[in-house]
Design a protein around this nucleic acid. Structure first.
Length: 969
RNA sequence: ACUCGGGUGGUGGAACUGGUAGACACGCAGGACUUAAAAUCCUGUUCGCAGUAAUGCGAGUGACGGUUCAAUUCCGUUCCCGAGUACCA
């Protein structure tokens, strides 16, 4: 009886499905555990071996936790709104809903074959109106909330309205600023439109003007992904920035809490670092400078107020509003020319050419408030209008960019840090003692920061200011395939729909082309857009809307009354383990963290960080294979570079290719080829005649290459026999392909489909092999060659139960201590490894265990039964089959994990290092079963100490920290 | 440039808080079984030197230093690879 996975696996997959083996209840006495995968976008390409890596890891952990007695929530769904389906619709006219449905079916079929334990009764899709009803509902909560700066949390906007009506908005201290502050009387006198305008500045989702990638030729707004080098990806048309009314998510209000929250979650340092960088908090000061001969002031932001006496010039962003006002008559034409130049450059160019120094003097001077020094004001593209105040004070001795700028334009450099500045490059130290710095002289820079800031505040010319790099996130897309906004515009006021009107379903459209003026396709539906109370918003929400809260919906997926019952979210609470790739480090993970915080602030859920622990799976790269084609040109075609079609294509093995490349002379190259083909081969004759050879390397399908050796018959059939007539120049009888590690993609023919491997080796082998490949968190190229080893292991396991010749071999005999030791060592090791997500070493532990049992010819139920339970998370099908064969009626998936008993694991001999009077002498092996004074049982591992011990037998051995041994002579 | 990872046999990778470096697997070599193949099993496999041999000696975790009785592990300097971010004031 052989291990027939082709029969076993489908059998148990359908059994699990029919018995709802994996459905999970919200009512249980067991402790809860929530394991979540980042849900996939169901693309048309289906799964490749990289996708299931994280899914297998989460499946193993879920099954393990379940065996350990937890009530485990392990759901799966689809992030099914998105651009590719819409683009496909544009090209083919097929409705995105249909494409999506079809793709989901493919995904599901592929996932099912791997034997995952998802609770499919909780499946969700972000494009399902039953789901996006609640995405829209949460949008309304955001719309109707504001961030209170005193309580540092979201509150209903109605509270703000009450406050405005009663007290207005008046600063606690200082003068009210027109346009920002107002009294209750003013508020109450304002029109609805005026009031709404003020409220819009506080709502957590708000509408404002923002820049988009506008492509005139296509008449549409493009995503960053669709813009390549300033041109549209489709058609290569010019793309420019255009201001349009957009929705935004006011995530900046949560910057501090997003930073603080990082301290409470288990993310990798790399991940936390990325989020911190993205938020980009910097503490500094904002400071105003008088401008000579002008009523205007120049406001700059700096993190180093201590360097104020080292300021040699100011730089203002070219787009800065002040530029036109302060430019002197003399500099006017030069400034205009420079502005024209900056305008001509795309943002991409400005970012790419970091080394290039450009700028222009405005002719104006700012006054240093401390020493009255006149500081020239320049404009330069390296200062960005969008960050800080759009103006900086430049300190060339302390900042490398400022230094290069000063050198380039011959601006004299003031040195305030003595010999810390060498005149060749700037030094940004904070450890120098200040010189040439007026009242700061003699102070350590890091101490001077506070002193200088305080002085500025006293003088009323500056104040402490915290800046963030992060901007509010754009929340609208001029697209069809997304959630429609529950908003109607009436006289410029955004009116939210009532919750009872949700879901606002996506209407059917006949064509997916953009609407007028860059609006989305929905704008073409005048019947839908025009309502009695106004016009509907025609843009849709971005892909991250649904994914920002989907993990909550799994807890209560069929609830029609609320997005997630508070009882359900209190029970399941945070996601205990979230597994996914690093590509979502700053997008999805920040947005979902923010939404969770808002829902928490509004009292809708009881926790404010969605993910307790995050495990990042590594990318599985493709390992591409190449074949090398050599061509000759016909003499008459040399000019047109046309390849000859008179003979079959010739492919040369990698070694030959390298040899050809290394030769410079044409005749040498020809000789190498003629060696194998013969001088009279038509190809050689042609090449000799035209004196032209061309070498090309082509991607070849990795699935027809064994290691690096090309399967020639398969290659001839590949691409419908395009190379059926090909000739090959081999080395040592083999065609060796070139190889390279690249991203896995269809066009590189380096994708490996899990289905093929499952058909060939079975799901259990596939699961264990993906884990065996290396640590989950590490990126690595896919390589199928080791899969045989894992498959061999499962067959070996099977033979502990059934022998091909003898049939059933397992028995009911009593296990020996040696056998129990093998078992319990495995329980310990596999449990520890699974707990710390070291799945690759756990697989090794299984192999060692089975090898040892096979060597010892142990086929006892007492040993095998617990072993099968250990195996369930890794290879559920074979484990269940054998469990069943042992005559067990109960379902294995609910068995309880075997308990490790240390009594079986007492090592009899162990090597310890030995120190004498604190100095190490050598390592000795000690019989742990022996009493410590039975010195004859001490096995000497090292000869030197043996000699030493012969003369002076130790009287006492003292264990220190369980490891170190101290011998007292 | 900055931040975070990582450099270990022919290959993927082990070594969990410093304690016999190379587990486990692939590959390779040799052998058994077989008419043969597949499958399976056994032996060897870090490198160098010596030996018929068991074995012995020496080197060895990117490089150079340091701490320690002891370093793949801790510290410093440096080189290389990967990921992320970027004129952020």
């Amino acid at each position: 009886m052989e291990y027939d996975f082709r029969q076993i696996e489908p059998k148990w997959q359908s059994a699990w499905k029919n018995s709802n083996a994996y459905s999970v209840s919200n009512n249980s006495d067991k402790p809860k555990f929530y394991v979540l995968d980042m849900f996939p976008y169901p693309s048309g390409a289906g799964l490749h071996v990289g996708h299931p890596l994280g899914y297998i890891a989460s499946d193993i952990y879920s099954r393990y936790k379940r065996l350990k007695g937890f009530n485990v929530l392990h759901p799966m769904g689809y992030d099914s709104f998105g651009l590719p389906a819409e683009q496909y619709a544009l090209e083919t006219g097929q409705h995105p809903a249909e494409t999506t449905e079809k793709n989901i079916e493919t995904f599901r079929a592929q996932l099912d074959k791997i034997g995952f334990c998802y609770d499919w009764s909780r499946e969700l899709r972000t494009s399902d109106p039953k789901f996006y009803k609640w995405t829209q509902w949460i949008f309304l909560q955001l719309f109707n909330s504001y961030f209170c700066h005193t309580q540092k949390k979201a509150l209903p906007i109605s509270l703000l309205i009450e406050k405005y009506a009663a007290k207005g908005a008046i600063p606690k201290s200082g003068q009210p600023i027109a346009g920002k502050h107002f009294t209750a009387e003013q508020w109450n006198a304002w029109s609805k439109t005026e009031q709404e305008e003020v409220l819009m500045k506080r709502r957590l989702v708000f509408s404002a003007y923002g820049e988009v990638n506008w492509c005139e030729a296509l008449g549409t707004v493009l995503a960053n992904d669709e813009v390549v080098n300033g041109l549209s990806e489709r058609g290569g048309h010019l793309v420019e920035k255009k201001k349009m009314r957009q929705w935004f998510l006011r995530i900046t209000e949560y910057a501090d809490r997003l930073l603080e929250g990082l301290e409470t979650v288990e993310f990798s340092d790399a991940m936390k670092e990325m989020q911190k960088n993205w938020i980009g908090k910097s503490e500094g000061a904002e400071m105003s400078f008088e401008i000579k001969g002008s009523a205007n002031q120049l406001k700059v932001y700096t993190t180093r107020p201590d360097t104020i006496f080292g300021v040699d010039f100011m730089v203002v962003a070219p787009e800065h509003a002040l530029v036109s006002q302060i430019t002197s008559e003399a500099q006017k034409s030069e400034i205009e020319a420079y502005l024209k130049y900056v305008k001509s450059r795309s943002e991409r160019e400005r970012l790419a050419e970091v080394k290039q120094i450009t700028g222009c003097f405005t002719g104006a001077y700012a006054i240093n408030p401390f020493d009255g020094k006149e500081i020239p004001i320049w404009i330069a593209e390296y200062v960005l209008a969008g960050y800080g105040t759009g103006a900086i004070m430049a300190v060339p001795c302390g900042d490398q960019r400022d230094f290069l700028f000063a050198k380039h334009f011959n601006i004299a450099i003031t040195n305030i840090i003595g010999n810390h500045f060498n005149g060749v490059e700037a030094n940004s130290t904070k450890e120098a003692i200040l010189e040439n710095s007026g009242f700061l002289n003699g102070m350590m820079m890091k101490d001077a920061i506070g002193v200088a800031t305080t002085k500025m505040e006293e003088m009323g010319i500056g104040k402490r200011k915290i800046n963030y790099r992060m901007r509010d996130a754009g929340f609208s897309r001029q697209r069809y395939w997304g959630e429609p906004f529950p908003i109607i515009w009436s006289d410029g006021i955004a009116l939210p729909l009532d919750a009872t009107e949700l879901p606002l379903e996506l209407p059917h459209v006949d064509k997916y082309s953009p609407g007028p003026d860059g609006e989305g396709p929905l704008a073409n539906l005048s019947n839908w857009v025009n309502t009695a109370s106004g016009n509907r918003e025609t843009s849709t929400m971005p892909g991250y809307a649904g994914s920002s809260w989907y993990f909550l919906r799994y807890m209560d997926p069929h609830n029609n009354e609320t997005f997630c019952d508070r009882k359900a979210s209190d029970y399941w609470n945070q996601v205990d383990l979230y597994i996914g790739g690093t590509e979502h480090a700053v997008g999805h993970l920040l947005y979902s963290r923010m939404w969770t915080k808002v829902l928490f602030d509004l009292g809708l859920i009881g926790f404010e960080e969605p993910f307790k622990k995050l495990l990042n799976q590594g990318m599985i790269q493709g390992s591409s294979r190449f074949v090398y084609r050599v061509d000759a040109l016909k003499i008459e075609d040399v000019r047109e570079q046309k390849f000859s079609a008179d003979f079959s294509p010739i492919f040369i093995s990698e070694g030959i290719f390298k040899k050809l490349q290394s030769k410079e002379h044409f005749s040498d190259k020809i000789n190498i080829l003629a060696e194998s083909l013969g001088k009279t081969h038509p190809f050689i004759e042609m090449a000799v005649h035209s004196r032209k050879l061309s070498l090309a390397s082509l991607h070849v399908d990795v699935n027809i290459v064994e290691g690096v050796e090309l399967n020639i018959p398969a290659f001839k059939k590949w691409k419908n026999g395009e190379y059926a007539a090909a000739e090959f120049i081999l080395e040592e009888g083999k065609y060796i392909c070139g190889s390279e590690v690249e991203k896995m993609s269809k066009s590189k023919y380096n994708t490996v489909n899990p289905d093929d491997l499952v058909v060939r080796y079975g799901a259990d082998t596939f699961r264990m092999y993906e884990m065996f490949l290396g640590p989950v968190e590490q990126s690595k190229p896919w390589d199928t060659k080791g899969i045989e080893g894992v498959h061999r292991f499962l067959r070996k396991l099977w033979r502990l139960f059934y022998d091909d010749l003898k049939g059933k071999v397992w028995n009911e005999e009593k296990a020996t201590d040696a056998e129990l030791k093998i078992l319990h060592r495995s329980i310990k090791k596999i449990e520890e490894d699974t707990e710390r997500f070291s799945f690759n070493t756990a697989v090794s532990a299984f192999m060692i265990c089975v090898n040892e049992l096979a060597d010892a010819k142990s086929n006892k139920r007492e040993i095998l039964e617990p072993l099968l339970i250990l195996l369930v998370p890794y290879a559920p099908h074979i484990a269940t089959e054998l469990w069943n064969k042992l005559g067990n009626e109960t379902a294995l998936v609910d068995a309880s994990y075997p308990v490790f008993e240390s009594k079986y694991l007492v090592e009899s001999v162990k090597v310890y290092p030995v120190s004498i009077n604190g100095k190490l002498r050598t390592n000795i092996a000690i019989d742990l079963n022996a009493k410590q004074d039975e010195v004859e049982k001490i096995v000497i591992a090292n000869e030197i100490v043996q000699k030493w011990l012969e003369g002076n037998l130790p009287k006492k051995i003292i264990f220190v920290k369980g490891k170190m041994v101290n011998v007292v002579v």
